[in-house]
Amino acid sequence: MCSYITERIAVCGSAKGAAGWMAVDTATIYFDHPYHAPLDHSLNIDFVNAAEGAPTRVAVELSAASARALVEKILAALEQGERAHGEV
């Protein structure tokens, strides 16, 4: 389906794209047709710098299963890292 359902969140950090590193302030997340991945639907995340007009983005298109696994691994890495370094 082509849904219009889109999650949006403010983020703080950097991403590296075709033009090199850039600051990013927004991520949009949606589960819909991918542009490139050979899947019917994918979990897509676009990291952009909305404050600069979002001329470029860093994008990923992941299968639903790998996106869920990624969420778990992100949380696991954060927990382990925060234990090792102290909460930041």
């Binding site: 219009y4 889109t6 949006r8 927004t26 949009t28 949606y30 819909d32 542009y35 490139h36 676009d46 952009v48 909305a50 979002a54 470029t56 983005r57 994008a59």
Partner: peptide, 12 residues
């Protein structure tokens, strides 16, 4: 694809 991402971010 980048332009389509902008369209989505604006709700189509």
């Amino acid at each position: 694809d980048d332009v389509a991402a902008r369209a989505r971010a604006q709700g189509g």
